[in-house]
Amino acid sequence: MATLTHHEVAYASDKKIHYLAAGPVDGPLIFFIHGWPATGITWKPQLDAFAAVGFRAIAPDMPGYGSSTARHVADDYCQEALVEGMMALLADTGRKAAVWVGHDWGSGVTSSVAIQHPETVKALVSICVPYSTIELGWDGFLPLVNRETYPADQYEFGQWDYMKHYEESFEKAVEWFDSDVVGFCKAITTKPASRPERYAPVMMSTVRKNGWLNGLPKPPSVEMTGPSLLADDVYESFAKDMQKTGLWGGSAYYLHHKRNAEYNGSRERKLKQPALFIHATWDLVCDTKSSRLVEPMREACSNLTEVTPDAAHFVQFEKPREVNAALFRFLVQELPSEWPGSLDSEYTKTKSDS
């Protein structure tokens, strides 16, 4: 197991980002950016694996989570503010560019980084949420809903109904999660006992009508769910982090669709750098298998690789070895200069080579 070190970078005069780092400080740089809900420690299988082969692997607690600034200030969680934090994080490493890996809202953030600061992206890896979608506001993903499953007259917002719930009733939406943070953390990281029906509408499509989990008064208690997909020590750290902050900050990422569209919408989105998209077969909310959600990424990326582990939304929790293998193979094949030990890598050149 890699030794994880804790770091903190201050930015914007009154904010901070806490991050975990592993591997040699001069190794090729790779960032792992989590989504909702997670913290940096949930990337531990990736931090261990990449540090072991010589990468400098970094996973921040994103704003709103863990030991990073987690104020109840909605403006902290628009994409513009989040990208500012990511640029401070990159600057703290002393590097000018990195491989960026994002999951869920983390993919939205890494996509925004690629749009706003393409020179900082050596390769882009998006997990479950494709590039050129959620970071563009409602118009970036709502038109791509599978309307055979979600007829517009019955499901105006498709499986994304819960996002509208945040916009209309934010405090009420967050109150439900915060009524049992530990129970929610356990439930969200537990593998379902069975796979859902592939093309049936999901519960997230009726949240405004029925409430979370079809109207449960609070999240399931820890006794009601099976073992977490996370290792015991990682789950305990994650749950403790989430108890500290609650879900307010992390959920406030959903409040800025219009603002995010204005920030990213007019920018060039064609991406020449190598890109990898990791689908998840059983992710029925971020549905990339029966909907057109991945099409904008396919159109925007000139060098795109796609893989599909047989897993649900938290694919990096459920199938960490498969995810790591996909990442390794992608980098070896598409970006060999960023692979430790490559003869073309700046990290292996001796002084006499320079």
Rank of each mutant, 00 (worst) to 15 (best):
C78V: 09
T3L: 14
P37F: 01
L284N: 09
F328D: 10
V294R: 06
L271F: 14
L90C: 11
K209R: 15
V101G: 00
Q273V: 15
W105G: 04
Y263M: 12
C185P: 07
Y347G: 10
W43A: 00
K319Y: 04
S126Y: 04
W248H: 06
S194D: 06
G27T: 09
G54Y: 02
A10N: 13
R269V: 07
D153L: 06
L144I: 07
C185G: 11
I17G: 00
Y19R: 02
C128W: 02
R195G: 13
E8H: 07
E84C: 11
T189A: 02
V99H: 02
L136A: 03
L331K: 06
N264P: 12
A81E: 03
D178A: 02
V207C: 02
L247F: 12
S266K: 15
K44P: 02
L271V: 13
K191M: 15
S112V: 06
P220K: 14
P192D: 04
V113G: 01
E236G: 03
H279I: 08
H103N: 15
W339C: 08
L335K: 10
V202E: 00
P336I: 15
P201L: 09
T42V: 08
G66F: 02
P201V: 05
H165E: 10
H34N: 11
C78L: 03
P274T: 09
F177H: 07
P196K: 14
V307T: 15
I33F: 03
G27V: 13
D139N: 11
A91S: 10
M1C: 12
P28D: 01
G108R: 09
W339A: 10
V9K: 05
S337V: 14
K44M: 05
T350E: 11
L29E: 01
R198K: 13
N146T: 07
D75P: 08
N214H: 11
V174G: 01
H313M: 13
S228C: 10
D153Y: 03
S237N: 14
P340I: 12
L335Y: 08
E299C: 09
K186C: 06
